[in-house]
């Protein structure tokens, strides 16, 4: 297996966006790309990352391989790469390590690191295809700000989606807060658009702590998609055009 990115910045951001939620995980490498799927330790959230082979500078995977890696260790290794350095990952069949090589574009500095792989029991679990009742596309910075603002007032947020607006509400010891975002089109700047596709109205409550973890992916994508169905996990997708995506799933709070 050998994969090369032209710039380390994307991989650094991907790892930063998921490492606080999941610790040790397996990267599954096939000829179509690298992916990981992992639940957080409390089984409330699920992370799915896909990095497509066409998003790499060069990519080769002769035999499918599952590499067990501590994401904190991977973040440490990637700290040694400059944002504009190229990154090459190499793993040979049956080897217990993965190699990282960072090269500056003027080629005057090359650094190499070897990370020990871990044995991780991988369960063969899958994410079902779901038809959602409401899908909201919005700027990722808006979601990040909304979750950060409401976190000052409460631990959880109720997201209610109607035909032309979406409302985020919270309440806590010091008071209450809500943010309403109305659908708006923008043909010249699609990344600032707020689009709502509503088949059925949805209202769900989630722990803000997790949503704040998810919005760490905002630097990777100008837009985010919230897909919701009543009593069903929320899907928060950060698309990375031509590269892949990060999808987070979060179980709703259900009244006992």
């Amino acid at each position: 297996f050998e994969a090369k990115w032209d710039h380390a910045s994307t991989l650094k951001k991907v790892i930063d966006a998921v490492k606080d939620l999941i610790g040790d995980t397996s990267w599954d490498c096939t000829n179509t790309g690298m992916s990981l799927q992992s639940m957080d330790s409390s089984h409330v959230a699920l992370v799915h990352v896909l990095l497509k082979s066409e998003g790499f500078e060069s990519y080769r995977c002769d035999r499918n391989v599952s590499m067990g890696i501590s994401l904190n260790s991977m973040a440490k290794v990637l700290k040694c790469a400059g944002n504009d350095d190229s990154v090459t990952l190499r793993h040979e069949s049956e080897s217990s390590v993965v190699n990282f090589a960072f090269e500056s574009h003027k080629e005057e500095r090359v650094s190499e690191f070897e990370l020990k792989l871990m044995n991780i029991d991988t369960e063969h679990l899958g994410i079902p295809e779901t038809e959602y009742d409401s899908i909201i596309k919005m700027p990722s910075a808006d979601l990040r700000r909304t979750c950060a603002d409401l976190s000052q007032f409460g631990d959880s947020v109720t997201i209610s989606c109607a035909k032309s607006d979406v409302r985020f509400e919270t309440s806590g010891d010091i008071g209450t807060g809500n943010v309403r975002l109305s659908a708006r089109g923008s043909s010249d700047k699609p990344e600032t658009e707020i689009a709502i596709e509503m088949i059925n109205p949805v209202s769900l409550t989630f722990a803000l702590k997790y949503l704040n973890f998810f919005t760490k992916a905002a630097p990777l994508s100008d837009t985010v998609k919230l897909c919701m169905s009543n009593n069903h996990p929320l899907c928060v997708e950060f698309p990375m055009p031509e590269v892949g995506y990060i999808r987070y799933y979060l179980a709703p709070k259900i009244d006992e």
Binding site: M39, V44, A45, L46, L125, P128, N231, A251, I254
Partner: peptide
């Protein structure tokens, strides 16, 4: 425990 059940039911064995 309830969240866990929702997520465990969603994320199923294949």
């Amino acid at each position: 425990a309830i969240f866990q059940k929702v997520m465990d039911d969603f994320y199923v064995a294949i």
